[in-house]
């Protein structure tokens, strides 16, 4: 399945990556190389096979409903590019 620049642009938007026009051709070519290799998967006969999400088929351990995590605000807010009054700041969001 070859992809064109439109598909690349769409994936880039979904992934919130900016792809400049100058990069698109090269990027599409590389992605097509990768997808071309990946397309070998289409040869596999897997109609009767269940997908495997985890190598070990074990079940989720469950945690007791207790508060164990401390308040880390004063530790993490300084890591933020922009913060004020205990909040992380972003450009205005319009709903």
């Amino acid at each position: 399945m070859a992809i064109d620049s439109k598909v690349v642009a769409r994936a880039a938007h979904l992934a919130r990556l900016r792809v400049d026009d100058s990069e698109t051709a090269e990027l599409s070519a590389r992605l097509n190389d990768i997808l071309g290799m990946v397309d070998q998967l289409q040869q596999a006969d897997v109609d009767q096979v269940e997908p495997l999400a985890h190598p070990l088929e074990v079940s989720q351990p469950l945690r007791d409903d207790r508060v164990t995590e401390p308040d880390v605000r004063d530790k993490v807010l300084p890591l933020a590019p922009a913060s004020e009054d205990g909040c992380f700041l972003v450009p205005r969001v319009i709903e």
């Binding site: 909040c87 450009p91 205005r92």
Partner: peptide, 10 residues
């Protein structure tokens, strides 16, 4: 209260 920006409270 964030002078034109949006504050995020998680």
């Amino acid at each position: 209260d964030f002078h034109g920006q949006t504050g995020i409270d998680l």
